[in-house]
Nucleic acid binder design. Structure first.
Lengths: 152, 152
DNA sequence: CAGATTGGTCAGTCTAGCTTACTATATAGT
DNA sequence: ACTATATAGTAAGCTAGACTGACCAATCTG
């Protein structure tokens, strides 16, 4: 929540602009590559899916939505062939959600899109400022995650 | 779209974490101050509302949603007393949406929340890196907005 | 082994988007 | 001056994706 026009835009607005640019780029490149059946909401599934897969409940916690909502998203992506569920060998209540080959391919396209944008930014800012940006954001991410861990 | 755990998190993920932290802080402080009737979607109205107000269609364009959707959001916020519409003197088709006093107060709380977070970050990073971050993000915002202006 | 916790589903609701279709006013091109 | 087109906004109806509450089955714990 900030002003658009005037003098000093707050950090919130600036972060939003940069973040949304990355989202837009990913959407474009995915569309170019023929992945037209994906929405913003699905991103949060892939974003939090570690190599080896994860349970629905875990994904839901990381994405900060209910397990019911995550379950619906996963179901959709499973029907489209990006994910698969297999029973969890160690717990008969649970199942593990993981990428299919098609899902892996999609994630590669998405990563490529962000790397492309990152190169463009580096060209504009220069390598040094780009590296400063990355390292500062990494520090902030660490701070934020640490606070989230202790706060609740 | 990126990985969570491993080595190098892409800039997209880092920006998302920082941006969402700002959104969370604003939500918290608004809730603390008794503004409990607001959702994420309403933020995009205030975010794009310049001093002096704007038309529904203009707001919709800036927020990248349809005018019908924006119209519904504005209607809601009008009923809650944050916004008011007055006829546009120069165009009898149009009306101008603007903040009420209650709306101004809300925006001040939101700005305060971000400034608070910004101070915390400055404390963690040091003033110099904080200022570098701000200035780099400003440069990127300019780059992005310029590209959006030329691309379509 | 009884009771509490955890993984997940089912059913129902709400919000915030979308499209398509429409009215009223404004602007432009003869 | 008059028609054609464009623009501001509303209306109606649909869908995706979020939520809560209730529930079942498996697991863990005292």
């Amino acid at each position: 929540m900030a002003q658009t026009q005037p003098q000093e835009r707050l950090i919130g607005a600036l972060l939003r602009i940069a973040f949304q640019a990355t989202v837009e780029r990913v959407r474009e490149r995915l569309a170019d590559a023929g992945y037209t059946d994906l929405t913003m909401a699905h991103f949060s599934v892939f974003q939090h899916l570690p190599p080896g897969g994860a349970r629905v409940t875990t994904l839901a916690m990381k994405a900060q939505i209910t397990k019911q909502s995550m379950s619906a998203l996963v179901e959709h992506l499973e029907r489209q062939g990006y994910l698969e569920r297999r029973p969890d060998p160690g717990d008969r209540r649970a199942s593990v959600v993981d990428l299919t080959a098609r899902g892996e391919a999609l994630v590669q396209v998405a990563r490529g899109a962000i790397e492309e944008l990152e190169r463009e930014w580096a060209e504009h800012l220069g390598d040094e400022r780009m590296e400063q940006l990355r390292s500062t954001l990494r520090d902030l991410a660490r701070l934020i995650e640490q606070q989230q861990g202790t706060a609740p």
